[in-house]
Computed example of a mutant assay.
Amino acid sequence: MDTKALGKTAVLMGGTSAEREVSLMSGSGVLHALKSQGVDAYAFDPSTRDLADLKREGFARVFIALHGRHGEDGCVQGALELLGVPYTGSGVLSSALCMDKTMSKRIFVAEGLPTPRWLWLGATEQSRERIRTIPDDLGLPLIVKPPREGSSIGITKVAGYSEMAAAVTLATQYDPDLLCEEFIEGEEVTCPVIGTGDGATALPVIRIVAPEGNYDYQHKYFTDDTRYLCPSGLPEDEEREIQRIVVAAYRALGCRGWGRADLMIRAADRKPFLLEMNTSPGMTGHSLVPKSAQAVGISYEQLCVQLLAAATLDSEAQQVQGS
């Protein structure tokens, strides 16, 4: 590929979300990779610069390495649509749906895709009496999380009734709404997808083995204690079924470019359950999409260029799908 033909490229990183630190790590890796392949690439932090500078300074396309709010939720995608600057990853609606785990779950259920049982409580529905009854509805242990955050931020595994209040307090620091979810006892896996529509394909599944099963923010990004198994070591039929479910979810949510689904495999019967779809996955040294791509011979640098080359706008993507 003639990488010079990709034009002047901005790597959006940093931003204002709770995942800013991780985004800076992702963006730095992507920027270095693109430059090493001859792409005319520059760092661009929307927390310190006006997005309109992208148009004023002649950027031809954008690699979105932002995570979380205002970067992964459709906001920056909408701004880029208005500016007419093509960008990597999913469009406005798909990004918004995937960022909101409650909306994602509603689509999973409508499409007949497996996901843990859950309860969503708006800001006005979180009385002490209601919070106390959630374990009766979902059983123990259960998961309490903010529905519109990522990277395990604000999440608590609740083992007893007495832990509910603290879990709710933590989650609502990040989101006024609350998502409570049945805990699936078993193995955690993740599966990336690359492409769009009928061309979307799943990459190899990665099995995550975290210390004491605690795959939290620290273990995701800042320690080397977590093991990522790729090949996953799962039976072939289990891996294929996970890939089938993930591609179906990706298409149902209208994703494009790339994404990564997180799942749990229930130990009791080996049934996989979708937790969420990430539309701007991490690209740090600990990140999982590059590990999975590497397993099928796609280097980190090749992956970055491939994703950048697929940058588009909603209107352009719809024309391609409709042709």
Rank of each mutant, 00 (worst) to 15 (best):
S152E: 05
W258Y: 13
R207W: 10
D100N: 13
Y87G: 11
L263E: 10
K145I: 02
G122Y: 05
Q294R: 14
V158D: 06
T16F: 13
I131E: 12
T115K: 05
D40A: 14
T88N: 02
A166L: 06
R148M: 12
K55R: 12
T201L: 15
G322C: 13
A202T: 00
T169Y: 11
A159M: 15
Q318S: 15
G233S: 09
L93T: 07
G112M: 10
D225H: 15
G160C: 14
L51R: 09
V11L: 05
T226P: 09
R117D: 13
A33F: 04
G233K: 10
Q173P: 04
G195R: 09
G38S: 02
G78A: 04
C191W: 07
Y250I: 01
V247P: 00
A33P: 12
V193S: 12
K101D: 06
E182W: 00
V158C: 03
T279R: 00
V22S: 10
L303R: 05
T226M: 12
P204E: 03
H32T: 14
L97C: 10
I64V: 14
A268F: 09
K271N: 10
A166N: 05
P114S: 09
S287N: 01
A43C: 08
R260I: 01
A65P: 01
F63T: 01
N278R: 02
S23W: 08
P116R: 01
R227S: 15
G71Q: 01
L93P: 08
E163S: 12
D216C: 06
G197M: 03
L170T: 06
V39E: 05
R69N: 09
S90W: 07
N278G: 03
T190H: 03
R132S: 15
V205A: 11
I153Y: 05
R130I: 07
P147M: 12
E236M: 12
A311H: 00
D53Q: 08
T172W: 05
D269E: 07
T115R: 11
A96D: 03
I265S: 04
R128E: 15
G78S: 08
A159S: 15
P281W: 09
S127L: 13
V62Y: 04
G29C: 11
K55H: 03
L274Y: 02
S26N: 04
Y174S: 13
A311R: 00
R49H: 06
A167E: 02
R106F: 15
Y87T: 02
A171E: 08
A309H: 12
I245K: 00
G322D: 12
E125N: 07
R256F: 07
G89L: 00
Y250F: 10
R148K: 08
H32C: 14
Y42I: 11
T312N: 01
K157A: 14
F273M: 11
S23R: 06
V247D: 01
Y42V: 04
K220Y: 11
S162C: 10
G74K: 06
S95N: 03
E185G: 12
H32G: 10
S104P: 03
G282R: 02
N278H: 04
K271P: 07
I194V: 14
K55L: 06
K291L: 13
L179V: 05
I245C: 07
A65W: 04
A5R: 10
P272A: 08
C191P: 06
I298S: 09
I153S: 13
A159N: 15
M283P: 04
D177M: 02
G89N: 02
Y161S: 14
G257H: 00
V76I: 13
E111K: 15
M99T: 00
D53G: 01
P86S: 07
D136E: 13
A60M: 04
